[in-house]
Amino acid sequence: MKILVCISKTPDTTAKIAFTDNNTKFDTGGVQWIINPYDEWYALVRAIELKEADPSTVIHLITVGAADAEPIIRKALALGGDEAIRVNADNHDSYYIASQIAEVAKQGGYDLIFTGKETIDYNGSSIGGMVSELLDLPYVSLAAKFDLAGTKATITREIEGGEEMNEVELPVVVSCQKGMAEQRIPNMKGIMGARTKPLKVVEPVAVDTLTSVAGFGLPPAKAGVKLVSPDNVEELVRLLHEEAKAI
């Protein structure tokens, strides 16, 4: 059993969002970087749990990024996983990143590919779907539960207003969200061990990008909260009805 977990480096949730170069680049000054929470808490931790249930399981982590992504991938290795692969490329569009992951996946012979449901920076929710199409594999998106019996996976995915239970033979690509696993904190043994785990750097394959960022912007600031007295709840409802037209 071989699992590939896709890891992305994202700015911390509390990072100040600003742009430079005439609003064409994200301002990374002073930004703390973290493992994209969906990749970490749900995809990676579930993979680690599967390895705990079956120690013969091998977990590889992959990230597409420059050398500055290495602290993040070491941090992921401290949680678990056997080795990591970094595709040495700057950030391009989803199609480019998915193509790099698919290329590594083709050579690795993985039974299972996990991604987080989206990254908290670009909010694309596209990598899993693109990788699955590039590999012509089935894809279960927004999975909240994942169990294995031999080569058969039982997966619960979110649908509008409920859940759907799926069964699929491996290999499969799964995007993971809340419910898959619980957040873990790396322990000292993990942190020490991560330093010596293999981190392989591979060069990207030549792929066209399909989209590019023309520019960024910030939404207009809120006008400020309109406070209503707790003794005049009717006034709030009137405002919502007549002014905001929200009810």
Binding site: Y122, L210, A214, F216, G217
Partner: peptide, 8 residues
């Protein structure tokens, strides 16, 4: 924030 994405 928002991004303007050019589709090529």
């Amino acid at each position: 924030a928002f991004a303007n994405i050019a589709v090529k």
